[in-house]
Amino acid sequence: YETDHQDYCEVCQQGGEIILCDTCPRAYHMVCLDPDMEKAPEGKWSCPHCEKE
């Protein structure tokens, strides 16, 4: 199925295993987040940009 999420990391602009924000189209590698994540979040997750809003 098609999503509106970007298929690359917002921080480093590379693809790969990325996690998707449930609020906006941004996507991130877990290691590119500050602080980085050990494992993928369970349930709904909002990226740092959305958390600030």
Results as ranks from 00 to 15, higher is better:
residue 1 Y to D: 00
residue 1 Y to C: 14
residue 3 T to C: 14
residue 3 T to N: 08
residue 4 D to L: 11
residue 5 H to I: 13
residue 7 D to E: 12
residue 7 D to Y: 11
residue 7 D to V: 06
residue 8 Y to A: 10
residue 8 Y to E: 08
residue 8 Y to F: 15
residue 8 Y to H: 15
residue 10 E to V: 06
residue 10 E to L: 11
residue 10 E to C: 05
residue 10 E to W: 12
residue 11 V to R: 14
residue 11 V to S: 09
residue 11 V to H: 14
residue 12 C to K: 01
residue 12 C to F: 02
residue 12 C to D: 00
residue 12 C to Y: 00
residue 12 C to M: 02
residue 14 Q to N: 03
residue 14 Q to A: 04
residue 14 Q to E: 15
residue 15 G to P: 08
residue 15 G to V: 06
residue 15 G to A: 10
residue 17 E to H: 08
residue 18 I to P: 03
residue 18 I to L: 06
residue 18 I to Y: 05
residue 20 L to P: 14
residue 20 L to H: 14
residue 20 L to E: 11
residue 20 L to D: 14
residue 21 C to I: 01
residue 22 D to C: 08
residue 24 C to I: 00
residue 24 C to E: 01
residue 25 P to E: 14
residue 25 P to V: 05
residue 27 A to F: 07
residue 28 Y to D: 02
residue 28 Y to N: 03
residue 28 Y to M: 12
residue 28 Y to H: 12
residue 29 H to Q: 01
residue 29 H to F: 00
residue 29 H to G: 01
residue 30 M to E: 13
residue 30 M to A: 10
residue 30 M to K: 14
residue 32 C to Y: 00
residue 32 C to E: 02
residue 33 L to P: 03
residue 33 L to D: 00
residue 33 L to R: 05
residue 33 L to C: 12
residue 34 D to R: 07
residue 35 P to A: 11
residue 36 D to C: 06
residue 37 M to R: 12
residue 37 M to Y: 04
residue 37 M to F: 15
residue 38 E to W: 04
residue 39 K to G: 11
residue 39 K to H: 05
residue 39 K to I: 08
residue 40 A to R: 07
residue 40 A to D: 12
residue 40 A to G: 07
residue 40 A to Q: 06
residue 41 P to N: 15
residue 42 E to K: 12
residue 42 E to N: 13
residue 42 E to I: 05
residue 42 E to H: 03
residue 42 E to C: 11
residue 43 G to L: 05
residue 43 G to I: 03
residue 43 G to N: 09
residue 43 G to F: 03
residue 44 K to N: 03
residue 44 K to S: 13
residue 44 K to R: 12
residue 46 S to T: 09
residue 46 S to I: 02
residue 47 C to E: 04
residue 47 C to F: 02
residue 47 C to D: 02
residue 47 C to Y: 01
residue 48 P to A: 11
residue 48 P to I: 04
residue 48 P to V: 10
residue 48 P to S: 12
residue 48 P to E: 07
residue 49 H to C: 15
residue 49 H to I: 08
residue 49 H to F: 09
residue 49 H to W: 07
residue 50 C to H: 14
residue 50 C to D: 07
residue 52 K to T: 13
residue 52 K to Q: 08
residue 53 E to I: 04
residue 53 E to N: 02
residue 53 E to C: 05
